[in-house]
Write a protein that binds this DNA or RNA. Structure first.
Length: 497
RNA sequence: CGGGACGUGGCGCAGUUUGGCAGCGCGCAGCGUUCGGGACGCUGAGGUCGCGGGUUCAAAUCCCGCCGUCCCGACCA
């Protein structure tokens, strides 16, 4: 019921995890907590109660179409989510900035170098959002960053500058035959003088909430679907490309000969890269025919201008003219300025000092715990396995006993184990009776940050080996000093950031 | 939903094309040697070949149906 009330039952679509109980009542598992926290916030009545920051670590459920990549994308996960409640925009900004700073610190502490990027708010709604992205080939998002300034954005939102295209002299609109030329590339190759890709208009047919619309892009550009979603405000599963037979019905031609010249009965979205352009080429809505000399302003009836194109690697930064770098990242956190949409629908209002009622201004802030753990591993490993940062290591030190069947050696190892435990250093004692190579390899695979190797040879000479997992840096240490050395190293790492 | 692959001892796989004793590596058990970077020898245990039906003298193998898993696309913390 609450999901219907907020409108997200439809907006989220099939990703909302729905079930029916024995009475046939519809239930939905928690997707996120905006609705619930807005409901809880109805218990607040006075501006004196604000600001508030509420948080939880809790299971979230999403009926993902395709869970994959280990822990990166699953249908049940733990989210650290928090919500800010404020009386005014500056309060929201403060809470938002606090979260941004706190989250950046969290990511640094757990061994990530996540960068904050502008993002699309998607089904969360609200005015502004920032994603934290960890660079990784295992990632599922594309991000652009400027090499020379601090412009950073998800491709779902990223913009870039384009060099001007020389359209030559304006000419009149003219149909011309283009037999067999059904792709931008083939048309450009057949008519290099007038139909280079950047001088063509690409026409796509999409269905938005069941209605066909046209999408116009420059010939060498690709559609960024999230931008279309944002431009239309439609739920994500209400937007899809048209099927070939639908396209023929709508425009009278097959893909490859489509255009918007003379189309007046359809909504036409056009990308700003086409604004003011003339002397262009586009399909004539009859197979094997195109128009040339197209003047966008004169010949095409554009309903809505909207940034729709996907930015590509190496384009020009709109901020400082620098070069944009396109890379893959894991979304390790996402924070939103929600505004008042949830408080208004759920009735969370407070009175100000003049007795006037105002909807609470909300923000929401999420970190995916298991996904972040996976990202930490992606960012901290080598050919031998995981390298856990001390801050998140399941154990901080592993004592590898060489010859665990030797009494004196085992006794020395156990003494060391107790010493470390007493100093609150989480320690693993590997006293399995196995070959040393096996135990070294296991310790490295599971990534314990420090290893102390205790063996009969060393016990006799009064030394052990202390190995740092990162870089496998080894040092000989006196058996009486090693506990202090290890404790010092662990404590230094814990308080490093 | 669209496209593709796979299901055989605990794990990873071969065998399926062309039907004919169910195999290999790792792991496991016993004995011996070895022992500070993933040891070796000998002996041994362990399998309804995903499920159901069919064809055949004979099915892991061919046919039909079902179930499950994984991968590639649209989605998100």
């Amino acid at each position: 019921e609450i999901w219907r009330k907020s409108g997200r039952y439809e907006l989220i679509g099939d990703n909302l995890f729905k079930l029916k109980d024995r009475k046939g009542a519809e239930l939905a598992l928690g997707f996120t907590g905006e609705e619930i926290f807005a409901m809880l916030a109805t218990e607040l009545f006075s501006y004196r109660d604000l600001p508030q920051i509420w948080y939880q670590m809790h299971s979230k459920f999403r009926d993902e179409p395709r869970p994959k990549s280990g822990l990166l994308r699953v249908r049940e996960f733990t989210m650290k989510d928090s919500y800010t409640l404020d009386i005014d925009r500056p309060g929201l900004d403060t809470g938002f900035d606090k979260h941004r700073a706190a989250y950046e610190r969290i990511f640094a502490r757990i061994g990530l170098d996540a960068v904050a990027v502008e993002a699309s708010s998607g089904a969360m709604g609200g005015s502004e959002s920032i994603e934290f992205m960890q660079r990784s080939d295992a990632g599922e998002d594309w991000v652009v960053t400027c090499e020379t300034c601090d412009y950073r954005a998800n491709v779902e939102r990223a913009v870039s500058a384009l060099p001007l295209v020389d359209d030559g002299e304006p000419e009149s609109l003219e149909r011309f035959p283009t037999p067999g030329l059904r792709t931008i590339k083939s048309l450009a190759e057949a008519h290099p003088d007038l139909a280079a890709a950047e001088r063509q208009i690409k026409t796509l047919v999409y269905y938005v909430s069941g209605e066909p619309v046209l999408i116009l892009l420059r010939g060498d550009h690709d559609l960024q679907e999230q931008k279309l979603l944002d431009a239309t405000g439609a739920p994500e599963d209400a937007v899809r490309p048209g099927q070939p037979d639908e396209i023929r019905e709508v425009l009278g031609a097959d893909p490859g000969s489509l255009g918007a010249v003379g189309v007046s009965d359809l909504t036409v979205f056009a990308d700003p890269a086409l604004e003011g352009r003339f002397n262009m080429t586009t399909g004539a809505n009859e197979d094997d025919w195109h128009y040339r000399g197209v003047d966008v302003a004169r010949d095409i009836k554009v309903t809505t201008w909207a940034d729709l194109r996907a930015v590509t690697d190496g384009e020009i930064c709109v901020e400082d003219g620098g070069t944009l770098d396109l890379w893959k990242g894991i979304e390790v956190g996402h924070i939103f300025k929600l505004g008042t949409q949830y408080s208004e629908t759920f009735g969370a209002y407070v009175q100000d000092e003049d007795g006037e009622s105002h909807p609470i201004i909300m923000g929401s802030y999420g970190i995916g715990v298991e996904r972040d753990m996976a990202a930490v591993v992606e960012a901290n490993h080598d050919e031998n396995g995981i390298i856990w940062p001390v801050s998140v290591a399941p154990y901080e030190v592993v004592i590898t006993v060489v010859r665990a069947d030797d009494d004196a050696t085992l006794a020395a190892a156990r003494r060391l184990y107790s010493e470390l435990q007493e100093a609150a250093v989480e320690t693993l004692l590997d006293d399995r009776i196995d070959r040393p190579g096996v135990k070294f390899a296991d310790a490295e695979l599971i990534g314990i940050p420090y290893r102390v190797t205790v063996g009969p040879r060393g016990v006799e000479s009064g030394t052990v080996e202390l190995v740092e997992r990162r870089g496998l840096v080894k040092s000989e240490v006196g058996i009486d000093d090693v506990a202090a050395r290890a404790i010092e190293a662990v404590q230094a790492a814990r308080s490093a950031i």
